[in-house]
Design a protein around this nucleic acid. Structure first.
Lengths: 243, 243
DNA sequence: CGTAGCTTTGATGTAGGTCAAGAAATGTGG
DNA sequence: CCACATTTCTTGACCTACATCAAAGCTACG
């Protein structure tokens, strides 16, 4: 596999300069390619097989189910995202993962990953950096649910998604293709689907964003950034610690 | 410093067997002891000095401020907790840290930490394991704010805190000393202080928990666990990957 | 021993939930 | 390429959990 045709390498190299040897190891990590149909969970809470994935194509969501039957989506993962690092480190998965679309992923086992890390420590820090960035997004998500109202939260969510997608070459400043239903957004934003619908209408009528027919279009990008109080510094970093 | 008299070592060794050499390195990490008064931020968003801390005494909170003047507390840290790993990895802090009580902490610099990691890889995984566990708590916090009502969320919060404190020898099954004001709880739980007060009364009158005068007392522990749908498996793990 | 920060409670307001039902879109088998 | 089924979207009517405002009683500590 050529070096930068996988989104994971693309994402990492936006922040570290990866040497050919790093890319080779990365490439090896992509050896076991698998594909998953939409809708059938590819990982679930309590599972102990310590398998992780690098997403190469499609979208998934990580979620937790509550006893009342509701669910909370913790995050969406898009191509280039690493999935299940925590289940490797903690030996068991603490959440479920469901493909939203048909998904292609490279399967990575604990041993393979640890192996890769000892072969190139720089890759280890790069992955750790990516994990920290994911955690920063998690924090921002928490803040949004805790203290932003529905409209700001939704706007913020769409802007973050756009920024993440652009980094792996999906979508541009004008918008992006988005396979999420309003139900999925509701479960991620801590809202009801009905209310998500109302909020999207509101944002559309305010001339800020349009999300229809599987496509998000920014009608007034700067206006939306202002409205959502979106500060993307938590997404942009000067890269991992080690050069 | 003797080996297990610091809560960080105590916490880690509940999950990995630390060799004397590991403990020695850990002890070295505690060399630069500092103390902070309550109320004055010891770290803030955007700060780039890459300093981290290991809390040995007192409580702090990590929070973010929103443009509207509200704030969201992301987590509380108690003795034995590591503070600011992400600011080392990402080179800049993405949140503020405020001591709630007078605090004692060991100051750890990026270089010192990296150094310790190369000296004993087992310590590196132990710290990584602790970070993963913190992330699992963050996820649970997100789920609570997104999908639990005020009373369940509050109950869940108190139970989690109790479990964390017991691990470092603070408090027991009957309760714990708790320096949090209802304002602080409100900012953590995504509620108003007034509502926290009402919820606490409700829980007290239901004979579940009493939080008064800086002390949390579990009047009916199992009842509370049931009420909050508290499943502590996200806190208990078989320890890090490497033996 | 005063004053600033907590806690408690009541009254009232509102963001967002729930229920319900029709309209679009999307998918599936023939 | 069509008919039918299923999911998704959209809107309206109504309701509830929690916010906000206000004011009084506590606590504590400088």
């Amino acid at each position: 596999m050529a070096a930068l045709d996988n989104p994971f390498a693309r994402k990492l190299s936006a922040f570290v300069t990866l040497a050919p040897s790093d890319l080779a190891v990365l490439s090896d990590l992509h050896a076991r390619r698998r594909s998953f149909p939409a809708g059938r969970d590819m990982m679930h809470e309590g599972q102990k097989d310590q398998t992780a994935y690098i997403l190469t194509k499609g979208w998934v969501c990580s979620y937790k189910l509550l006893s009342g039957g509701t669910r909370q989506i913790v995050d969406f993962q898009i191509p280039g995202d690493f999935l299940g690092l925590r289940s490797i480190l903690l030996r068991t998965s603490d959440h479920n993962v469901e493909p939203i679309t048909k998904v292609e992923a490279a399967e990575v086992h604990a041993s393979g990953l640890l192996d890769a890390f000892t072969r190139t420590p720089r890759l280890a820090t790069a992955v750790l950096w990516a994990a920290s960035r994911d955690e920063a997004m998690l924090v921002e998500h928490l803040v949004g649910i805790g203290r932003r109202n529905a409209a700001e939260r939704t706007a913020h969510f769409l802007l973050e998604l756009a920024a993440r997608l652009r980094l792996v070459g999906l979508g541009d400043k004008s918008g992006f293709k988005c396979p999420l239903s309003q139900y999925l957004m509701a479960d991620a934003l801590g809202l009801s689907a009905v209310h998500v619908n109302r909020v999207l209408r509101e944002l559309r009528e305010a001339g800020l964003v349009t999300f229809q027919n599987g496509h998000v279009h920014f009608d007034n990008f700067d206006g939306l950034v202002g409205f959502a109080d979106f500060d993307r510094s938590y997404l942009d970093h000067e890269g991992p610690l080690l050069k």
